[in-house]
């Protein structure tokens, strides 16, 4: 990954409690505030994190909305609504997984955002603790995108990229042949067979006394 995460202030999670009942009340709800106020032109494309026993996640954003009538207005809007991180809150599945919230998961594009509020919910009482770890916010959503598929698979109309070289001199034709050769050898090198030779010795030697613990 080349892009660096946005430099933002992430506050410690706050557990929601009823003020009278201090001790045993399990609200199953925590809030993390993220301030983006020190960023010029704030825009959020991706949110990365590692789950730790959170069942549902909601993201609210404090947005400045440009209105025709009365200029700017600042409003809280729900951007991601109760996204399921654990399919069943009582069991492990998804409990420690890595997640990426992309534009696809968001209800609207996050532009002109001054703060984010991330709401964690865990309705199941079987877990002692729930949180999210390694929270990182990225501006664009271009990171982690796999290379595009070859054109013949995606069925997009192919445009022939090759142009004929006019007035070919000897030198150029030679170089193009060489280039072809080079391309061929590159291709061969890139396509090593997956049939292994099955060697396990080092320099023909496989004399071992004891196993290593590290």
């Amino acid at each position: 990954m080349t892009e660096r995460p946005l430099h933002c202030t992430i506050k410690n999670p706050v557990t929601i409690n009823l003020s009278d009942l201090k001790s045993d009340f399990h609200s199953g709800c925590r809030i993390i505030d993220v301030s983006l106020s020190n960023i010029i032109n704030p825009e959020v494309g991706e949110i990365h994190f590692k789950n730790s026993y959170t069942a549902y996640l909601t993201v609210k954003a404090k947005c400045r909305i440009v209105d025709a009538k009365d200029g700017n207005e600042i409003r809280w809007r729900t951007c991601v609504k109760k996204m399921k991180l654990m399919p069943n809150p009582h069991v492990e599945a998804g409990a420690q997984d890595y997640f990426v919230i992309t534009r696809k998961n968001m209800l609207f594009e996050l532009i002109n955002v001054s703060a984010l509020r991330i709401i964690l919910q865990q309705p199941s009482p079987v877990w002692k603790e729930f949180k999210i770890e390694d929270l990182k916010i990225f501006r664009s959503s271009e990171s982690n995108r796999p290379n595009p598929l070859p054109a013949w698979l995606t069925d997009s109309p192919s445009k022939s990229g090759k142009k004929k070289i006019e007035g070919v001199t000897n030198l150029e034709s030679l170089s193009s042949v060489l280039q072809q050769l080079w391309a061929l050898s590159e291709e061969v090198a890139a396509q090593q067979t997956n049939r292994a030779l099955g060697r396990y010795e080092v320099d023909g030697c496989y004399e071992i006394n004891l196993l290593s613990y590290t």
Binding site: V202, C205, Y206, E207, I208, L210, L211
Partner: peptide, 19 residues
Amino acid sequence: PPKSYIRGKLGVEDYAVIY
């Protein structure tokens, strides 16, 4: 998979083998 080293080359990564 468990790891080991060829005899006499303990700790030398080039001589690490799977056993």
